[in-house]
Nucleic acid binder design. Structure first.
Lengths: 255, 255
DNA sequence: CTTTGTGAATTATTTCACAGCA
DNA sequence: TGCTGTGAAATAATTCACAAAG
């Protein structure tokens, strides 16, 4: 049973829709920026604009968390930051390991956003013996042989895979066997994992292909542009750009 | 009307659902692998397994493209590769520029997956004068001052932003003004763009936060595990892991 | 008078399940 | 027979639109 779960719509519910969960980080980022500017409260309209969604969606999203706003006023920025952080589990420390310290792995290790919110790079792991001991982003790279020990010693439950595609599944299997239950995969491969393990993928190549699809369509339409006939205007055509800037569905990366 | 569009369900239709479009690259990758192994045909069941989705979804997805399979047999690998490539617009060349050649930008420039399928890194652009002229991945970095000229001279319609968050919107505005209509944003910011411009984002930080959310839930459930009572087991919790390996919704990156 | 919170309506996506073609 | 293609049913997500709280 995929991450099993019993389920129950009953009572209070704790069933936050996946689509909502995916937007919480966006709200949190916008709120953090407001917090840094010492803005005390914000309306759903303003916050929605900052996060690039519409206000109805934002309010509905927040309604799954509880009633944290004040009618006629808006939301208390600090309070919301705390509530969302807690909901996302960011009030605790999450040690993360990055496996595969090539160009991308190094870029991820150097990426600041990590430390900021609950995440801490506990270790960098690479299969190349020549890399062992060399510091990347101030952290010494360790050899793959010690992967299991590193995971266990640091209590790591989240792993980032930035290896070549060919090595990804094997690395994934070892991470999972060692106790990792969440994986962020940058390798252009579909990983298979047992139930209870979450995988998210980031794939540049897929993203570019999706853009190419829409790009091609734009080009084709220029030609058909004229015929704005009054017929079945049919097909909605929502793709990305919802209202404003929006970014949308899934993500991807190299392929 | 996001990216405008007139549309017409009529006749053949050309309204491929966004969720389907997002999966086509996955199918294409799996098919390409089969093609390299000279596998002539594949069933929806096999291909679905390779792509990490279920076969009903795959067949439904393909049904939007047309009837490319043979009942009782399956799909011709080469033919499907061609059809999907064409649908995604990969049979043409897409010059791409990468703006912001830091750790990440360099990693992207070095990333092989680019060239493979229709995409070509036409130029690397950075604001640091010290970078100008230095080759990264064999391509000389050019200065931001020449951004507009580079876009126009190369007929670029897809831009990748890998700058710090603070510079992203400005770079985006210039790209759009110069003619770019599709943007892949790696900077942890919401970009605003005019209608007709597509933006997709890749955000490491958001992905990690989504994983943390599910991770936290897993931990919480261990405690409640026992009480499989018929009462308010509450919280649904369908999150990721669909059936098999699946990878799911949106994607993200640095924050 | 303003802005939240939320049922109800709408739209999108997934899954079922099976008729029908090769 | 085996497997595709697809209506119809089931789920999920979004948007509307408004009552009610401050």
């Amino acid at each position: 049973m995929a991450t099993g779960r019993t389920h129950r719509p009953a009572t209070r519910s704790r069933g936050i829709p996946e689509a909502t969960v995916a937007r919480l980080p966006l709200y949190l980022r916008a709120l953090t920026a407001l917090s840094e500017r010492s803005v005390p409260t914000v309306s759903s309209e303003e916050l929605a604009a900052a996060a690039g969604v519409n206000s109805a969606k934002l309010r509905k999203d927040f309604s799954y968390l509880g009633s944290y706003g004040t009618r006629g006023v808006g939301y208390d920025v600090e309070y919301l930051v705390y509530q969302i952080s807690r909901e996302l589990g960011l009030t605790q420390d999450w040690p993360v390991v990055i496996v595969g310290i090539g160009n991308l792995g190094a870029a991820l290790a150097n990426y600041g956003g990590f430390a900021s919110r609950g995440f801490r790079v506990a270790a960098l792991i690479d299969a190349d013996p020549a890399m062992a001991g060399k510091p990347v982003a101030g952290i010494p790279v360790q050899h793959t042989d010690d992967l299991e020990k590193i995971i266990k010693d640091n209590g790591v439950s989240i792993g980032v895979i930035a290896t070549p595609a060919g090595a990804a599944q094997q690395v994934c299997d070892r991470l999972v066997a060692a106790g990792v239950t969440s994986i962020l995969n940058f390798a252009p491969t579909v990983l298979s994992v047992p139930d209870g393990v979450d995988v998210r993928k980031v794939d540049l190549s897929i993203e570019l292909q999706i853009l190419a699809f829409h790009e091609q369509r734009k080009a084709g339409e220029e030609a058909v542009e004229a015929m704005t006939d009054g017929l079945p205007a049919s097909a909605a055509a929502q793709h990305s750009a919802d209202k404003g800037p929006d970014g949308d569905v899934p993500a991807v990366m190299p392929a």
